[in-house]
Amino acid sequence: MSFLPSPRLCLMNLAGSAILSFGLYHIHSLSGVTEGGILGATLLLQHWFHISPAWSGLVMNAVCYLLGWKLMGRDFILCSLVAGGGFSLFYAIFERFPHLWPHLASHPLAAAVLGALFVGVGVGICVRAGGAPGGDDALAMSISHLTGWNIRWPYLLSDLLILALSLTYIPLERIGYSLLTVILSGQIIGFMQRCPARRADVS
């Protein structure tokens, strides 16, 4: 029995993580639009409690992956390792090059919409392949698996909670753009989940 997922699932997770990392580097990293979920939570903890995102992100992601493993099994963890590792690899490659659209920093509405497209499609492909490139995705997939909800609702609820708490230090206007991008990306992921690809066995 092979330890790794099938080549098809590996390629899908790598493709999704490449699209996700491309969008985060070329759009979100310079747009000033914050995130919900775990990324937003790490920024919140850093602002109020001076806890480094390197540590808080590590702990929260680990908890979410552990929950996913308990609920969804070995295949989920293996696919998520490919997706998460692919994200780190592709982001490291992309950041060696200049940003393609530096002017997006002064156009937060365009950045919110375009960023949501890359995040939604990238994560959506990974979800269809049974993987989660980040702790947020693992948490949403676990809640969806446990409750039977469409995956867009766990994404939206967790993002709304973090964005509401982020109002304690981020201007309302920027939160509005962030809300737009998380709603759009969650809807895209949910749409892709409703049209799942044929699942291949992990053998």
Rank of each mutant, 00 (worst) to 15 (best):
N150H: 13
L24A: 04
L184H: 05
V63N: 04
K70E: 10
L109G: 15
L157H: 06
G190Q: 07
C10L: 12
H99F: 07
H107M: 15
M12Y: 10
V202L: 12
I183P: 06
L30G: 06
L66D: 04
F22V: 01
R199E: 14
G84Q: 05
L157E: 04
A54N: 08
L45G: 05
V121C: 02
I162E: 07
L89K: 05
V202Y: 14
R8W: 08
W153T: 05
M1A: 15
L146I: 12
L161M: 11
G57A: 03
I19R: 03
L9T: 14
S203K: 14
M141G: 13
H145G: 10
T168N: 10
G37P: 01
G134E: 04
I143G: 02
V202C: 12
G135T: 00
S106K: 14
G186E: 05
P196F: 13
V33A: 08
W149T: 00
V182L: 03
A110G: 14
Q187P: 00
E35I: 01
R199C: 09
I93E: 00
G115D: 01
P53F: 03
W69P: 10
I170N: 07
L14R: 02
I151V: 14
C64E: 07
L184E: 09
G122C: 00
R198T: 14
A132V: 03
I189T: 01
P98V: 15
W153H: 08
M72G: 03
F94Q: 04
G37C: 00
A110T: 14
R194H: 13
V123A: 05
C79M: 11
W69K: 09
A129M: 14
I175F: 07
L20Q: 06
V182M: 07
F90V: 04
R199P: 09
G73T: 02
W149L: 00
I189D: 02
L160H: 01
E95I: 12
W101P: 02
L180D: 13
W48Y: 10
W101V: 11
K70H: 11
Q187C: 01
Y155I: 02
W55N: 08
S2H: 13
A18K: 01
S31Y: 11
M12I: 07
G134P: 02
I125L: 05
P5C: 13
G36C: 03
A116S: 13
L184M: 12
R194M: 14
M141Q: 15
R199F: 08
W69E: 12
H26Q: 04
V127S: 04
D136V: 06
L81W: 06
T42E: 06
H28W: 10
L109C: 12
I77G: 08
G115R: 01
P196D: 11
D136Y: 09
P98K: 07
G16F: 00
R128Q: 15
H26K: 02
